[in-house]
Design a protein around this nucleic acid. Structure first.
Lengths: 192, 192
DNA sequence: GTCTATACATTGATAGAC
DNA sequence: GTCTATCAATGTATAGAC
């Protein structure tokens, strides 16, 4: 693997583990196993390296086809996506960036984060719309709203898990969400 | 106001605006309008000052009686608490700390955060239990789970709002949550 | 109690040899 | 392309005068 790839890989890991502000070029070079000159040859500096690393992470996450667009009924897909395994205490690779003041102040970095959420929210919205059309959710539900609610539950689950240093709050938040979706589903069926 | 109070106040503000790692003792002293000697006279260092400032913030937030324990039916109180104004792009004073690697690694700081969430989650849980007993939510709902779901929606709402630099994602997430609670409520009534 | 001066490590970047 | 040496600025803390 090239020095360049070693560097973006190491930066991606460190962005996840420590965030942007807390990661120094020295940390990245040490993990990548390359010298200082190598890094400043391939990249203009920390900012440029982070842009490339974060873009790569977001590309991988939003590039792969989502469970939300897979097999099964819309509500099944929604619940399957919600209950997919998520190590809560490690935090979200993308969402964690929003709490880093240096990232939010950096137009280029925050726009990568914003567009990643746009992509995910769009998938949520389409799955929810399909669920309403399939009669699995009441038509009083606004897809754009519920999309943000469900995305927030995952993001907030990470916050709760990190606050306690345990996985359980994340899992509990997801179980509660699924229970609410089931109750909403029940409220539609009863009106048939 | 004493220098000591100026310092804790300034640190509390900066913890909110920039987090712990990104706040230097120099920043705090500048905002507090005191010299260096003054700070190191009152506090052992940055850590000690942050502990006092964060404890004070958490004390104020969890000390005041919550809307969750106020007037109205349990479900009304839950919805009123959810829809209380929250400037999303500023982030949560407490929740933001969980994404700061230096805070999570600091046993004293993270325990302040954890206990703040414990307090809030306990209030959520009691209100939800009361709503179930009042027949406003289905008894299939697990209070401890839904408490974490609703707390996560607020925390995740901050993340989405900061990602976009807008208030709207937070408000949308809350509207979606209220809609789901209403749907769940409907599913109970129909079974009467 | 508060101030200024100073110390020492780390950060992010540059210079220049190979 | 990669290395080591070095730099100016900043972060955190101490010293010592008043």
């Amino acid at each position: 693997m090239s020095s360049r790839d070693q560097l973006t890989g190491a930066m991606a890991e460190l962005l996840w583990e420590r965030g942007y502000a807390a990661t120094s070029p020295r940390d990245v070079m040490a993990r990548a196993g390359v010298g200082q000159g190598s890094m400043y040859h391939h990249f203009g500096g920390k900012h440029e390296l982070a842009v490339e690393a974060l873009s790569s992470v977001v590309g991988k996450v939003t590039g792969e086809s989502s469970v939300l667009e897979g097999e099964g009924s819309p509500l099944e897909r929604i619940k399957r996506y919600l209950t997919a395994p998520r190590p809560g205490t490690r935090g979200c690779r993308v969402g964690r960036m929003t709490q880093d003041p240096q990232v939010v102040a950096d137009a280029e970095l925050i726009s990568i984060v914003a567009s990643a959420f746009d992509t995910v929210l769009d998938r949520w919205e389409r799955a929810i719309t399909a669920a309403i059309e399939a009669g699995e959710l009441p038509d009083t539900v606004v897809p754009a709203d519920l999309a943000r609610t469900l995305a927030a539950i995952i993001q907030g689950g990470y916050v709760l898990a990190r606050a306690k240093g345990e996985q359980e709050p994340m899992d509990a938040a997801i179980r509660g969400a699924v229970a609410m979706l089931d109750a909403a589903h029940a409220s539609v069926r009863d009106h048939d």
